[in-house]
Write a protein that binds this DNA or RNA. Structure first.
Lengths: 341, 341
DNA sequence: GTGAAAGCGCTAACAA
DNA sequence: TTGTTAGCGCTTTCAC
């Protein structure tokens, strides 16, 4: 009942042998006399010996822990990604330390500092929407801590990156709207310092160009992900002299809120205005009409990120990887016009 | 540019003093000559000295890390709770290690084992819906690791607990439905090994009794939180000889899905059937009609849990606490009948 | 006020 | 095959 836990020293004392022998027997990969090994294992079992991870950490200067920095856990996209990361990490015997940047550069920097101070073996990160510089990542590279960026990546850094095809899927979504006969397609675009947002906007614009639709500034609204002003933006769009007949929203919550406002203003969805979301939240299946959206492979992106990171942790010479995980267009009724051209 | 980080030994060598003096100067609370202290701090600053947390951990047998076990991060309730926990923990200089039990007893047990192996200083936990025993928590108590249960608590254990008034709020919600003139109120109840679910069911039943409504077995459906069978349950309720005219759902997702099915079957909400949700998800504001629900104080529960835990970590003799954080009934149109009795 | 030495629990190089 | 020793980076007695 002593609250002190048992150490190899205790086992050694009991058997009258040295602690190095005990250490060797316990760590499998050294030659120890079968007899003594057996005895050691028995005693270890009896005393319910558990190696002290803290001692190992100090000795080996690693922690079997990976750090994760994401903007926020309440965002379903990241919550799912965490699931994928943890799955892979836990199977490999790694713990996961999670930090939230709350979309703030300074918090992200502090998170990073504290993860480094905790000597995590590697870091997976999706940068905050506010972050427009990369100097705070230098410390990781300096300390040779493996790092994988996912989703919100930084192409300018020479590190592993896991991302999805924002440009292509945005292109495909816009093209889908065009094929439904939509002529004036508006977009709620994200923060332009984010690579993803730029790609999405480019995909949208290029699809319009391909089909000879003019790209109008007034149809492009710049927002952030928290969507505080969606109602205002929606009203703005409704009141345009040339009201759009389709809108590609920044995410499903914005899309649903917009639908709400459109309906209150007597607009029919999708015939007066088609609505396409982004993120495939549960909510989209239960609104009227059900929301078309883009399914982002967040769980898989998390899992893939963890796999790449672990490979780099285990072998410092493992190559930097850039991996694409594809998104998918999910067509429901909010963009499905009966009267296609 | 050496990748080895600087230690107190380095500083000592440079100044030609002993490392104990350096240690003392750096750890504030010992008397060191003003002159030498100043020099030490200067050099430390110059070399950008960072104490090695691993060495400290071993020495002091603690890690400045708290462990958190929750059923799943994709559940918005828990995602928000994590936010509250992290806020408080980070301000106090603690890191947070998060594990998901995926609603599985065995995973929960493994999570616990791995957190203990990592020597977390304390644990915050919300038990899985599958967990119907407490033996796996003994290890925590044995090792005298402070623990706080939140939301999904275990009243039978002598530990700190943070919970909300499930009974009272469920009573209030049911009473609200009665006051709207509902006569036959059904409930989608949760797993009965969960304390919360039992309390909610009891609140529901007692409210009915108080107002002389009979409690009918056929109006009580037992479900789990993932809600795979909601559509089936809904159809079952619709087809009852005495169709209910109100339903108190297990959570907002279930409520929204039920509304969807009700509407498809030509039922008007709330006049044919009123719907009350649970959890106050964003989704509830944007469905037709907007969903009445219960707002659970998840962020606050997380924050309060962390505060209690930290108090117990800092002072082992700090008292066990049981703290109630109140929920709130949010009335929207899905339960607001114009024709009250 | 400062230094020497021991120790947290473990591993690993070197000796025997 | 096993024991001795040193050391990971830090704190903390105990001398001086």
């Amino acid at each position: 009942m002593s609250s002190r836990s048992v150490t190899i020293k205790d086992i050694a004392k009991i058997l009258g042998i040295s602690k190095s022998t005990v250490s060797r027997a316990l760590s499998e990969h050294s030659d120890v006399n079968q007899e003594t090994r057996k005895k050691i294992l028995e005693v270890a079992q009896q005393l319910n010996y558990q190696p002290n991870a803290l001692a190992l950490n100090l000795k080996q200067q690693r922690t079997n822990t990976i750090g994760v920095i994401i903007p926020e856990t309440v965002n379903r996209f990241f919550a799912k990604a965490i699931g994928g990361i943890q799955r892979v990490a836990n199977l490999a015997g790694y713990n996961v330390m999670i930090c939230q940047s709350d979309e703030s550069y300074i918090t992200e920097k502090n998170n990073l500092r504290s993860l480094i101070a905790s000597h995590v073996d590697g870091v997976i990160i999706s940068v905050s929407s506010e972050t427009d510089r990369t100097d705070h990542f230098d410390l990781l590279l300096q300390k040779k801590i493996p790092v994988v960026f996912f989703d919100r990546i930084r192409e300018d850094l020479h590190t592993s990156q896991v991302y999805t095809d924002n440009y292509e899927i945005s292109f495909a979504g816009t093209e889908h709207l065009i094929q439904q006969g939509c002529q004036r397609i508006a977009i709620i675009a994200g923060p332009q310092n984010l690579h993803n947002s730029r790609n999405r906007l480019n995909g949208y614009m290029d699809a319009l160009k391909k089909h000879d639709r003019p790209v109008k500034e007034s149809y492009i609204v710049h927002s952030n992900f928290t969507g505080g002003n969606i109602e205002e933006y929606t009203r703005y769009l409704i009141n345009l002299p040339q009201r759009p007949d389709a809108v590609f929203a920044i995410n499903d919550y914005a899309a649903v809120e917009m639908m709400h406002v459109f309906k209150k203003n007597g607009l029919k969805i999708p015939d007066d205005i088609a609505v396409l979301g982004f993120n495939n939240e549960n909510i989209g299946r239960f609104v009227e009409p059900p929301l078309s959206t883009i399914d982002l492979p967040s769980y898989d992106m998390g899992a893939v990120s963890a796999e790449i990171l672990l490979a780099q942790i285990r072998d410092a010479s493992a190559p930097i990887q850039r991996k694409l995980v594809k998104s998918q267009l999910i067509i429901r009724e909010s963009t499905h016009r009966i009267t296609t051209p």
